[in-house]
Nucleic acid binder design. Structure first.
Lengths: 235, 235
DNA sequence: TTCCGAATCCAACAAAAGTTCCAGACACGC
DNA sequence: GCGTGTCTGGAACTTTTGTTGGATTCGGAA
């Protein structure tokens, strides 16, 4: 069961407003792998994840994927389209079987018109989303792939809220989609972090060895010399 | 003189509300090159450009610049920090001498609490900003530099509203800052677009020859074969 | 167990982007 | 007209990223 009060978006909205939101929401269930809505399609409304894991992503003309977020309950998505009523800005797919509440654009606008707390919450949520996107934009502009990978492992503010699975449990393919590159490149970067002594293998996955080193790498694009492992190859 | 009704952000706000906004605003003037506010500093409030050209940018640890927008009157900036009261998400500098009205975070919050139209306008503006950032993010993720350059010249939705100077009047240095790269790379890309017959030189600057070709390049990262100029070098 | 598909590892190569350097062109103020 | 600083053109080189292809490991289903 979904505890509506636990949803960060609705912090500040009174019981009365919550009840109205619940009344306006329609519940949908999706099988693993099923599409929830498509980028560019008519606004699908405001979505609340009650259960399951949801991926938001975009695809380019050559078919490469960019995962914007991996979200699990309780969280919300598609706020932007829900608010302006235009096309969905990304695709959404259920990674696992998922249960989702949907509030239509019109219903949300109507509720925001009567419930000031909801309107305020929306403003806050949009501002927060803006900051997140800007952070991601700077990552793509300034950081190398090893640096972005380190940041992903640190699970910091940028990715922490949006991408919920710990990176150590993601496949290289999934990490690549999140970082906006290809699996091979992620594999190489992982090997480098391993050799540099920042990560170590733990079974199938990776564990953090040197958090400070990862932080340094995330911030400066450089592996700190003090923690770098000695070269193995002799010329 | 600034015509407050001409500011897109305030579309829908009534005369009464506009008067209150004007009363809350403080006018500041800046010389060419003068800093308006700094990234990370305490929230500088909501800014309205009455006159002049303003650059919003970020800097990375190595000192490279990323120009997020080049704005001229009438337009607004720093909405996000003005709304959530946190640190400014970027630097702002007056490119030319500029005159700017500033409304503090507290004043804006108060006005939004009494003026529903202003609150709605803020929601719309934040949604629009979100879409712009997402578009830019995808540009950085998926497009090559020639492709981004073509998009800049096409002056399309992504850059059209935010970056007001026509690209043909920007220096290579400025284009590089907008695209998130370096001057040399922009120079090379420009030469390629020239050789491919998509642009031509017009005095100091460039003019568009083949708009469809630029569009194709912007969308697919490929220079269309039909318009490509014959190779000059023979092996 | 055996087989199968998914995920990984690794090497070699290709392409894109970043760096360094220097030579001209041009605009502007003196 | 003459320097001076900004902007541009372009070559040569390095690094990073993307691509290809094959070998290997792993876990679960038959």
């Amino acid at each position: 069961m979904l505890d509506w009060r636990a949803i960060p978006y609705f912090a500040g909205v009174e019981a009365n407003g919550l009840a109205q939101l619940q009344a306006a929401a329609h519940r949908h269930t999706f099988n693993a792998g099923e599409n929830i809505f498509a980028e560019g399609a008519r606004c699908a409304g405001f979505h609340i994840i009650a259960d399951g894991l949801v991926r938001l992503y975009r695809v380019n003309s050559e078919g490469r994927l960019h995962t914007l977020s991996l979200l699990r309950a309780p969280s919300t998505f598609n706020e932007v389209a829900a608010v302006d009523g235009s096309a969905n800005p990304f695709n959404a797919v259920a990674v696992t079987a998922a249960s989702v509440y949907v509030i239509s654009h019109n219903a949300l606008i109507e509720l925001m018109a009567t419930d000031r707390a909801l309107l305020n919450a929306t403003v806050r949520a949009l501002a927060r989303l803006n900051r997140e996107y800007l952070e991601r934009l700077e990552d793509m502009t300034f950081r190398t792939i090893p640096s972005r990978l380190a940041k992903l492992f640190l699970h910091d503010a940028t990715y922490g809220d949006q991408i919920c699975e710990t990176p150590s449990q993601l496949t290289q393919e999934e990490m690549a989609a999140i970082l906006g590159t290809t699996r091979e490149v992620v594999g190489r970067a992982l090997r480098n972090l391993l050799n540099a002594g920042l990560l170590r293998k733990q079974g199938r996955y990776f564990a953090i060895v040197d958090r400070a080193g990862l932080q340094m790498l995330a911030e400066t694009n450089e592996v700190p010399a003090s923690t770098r492992a000695p070269e193995l190859k002799t010329p």
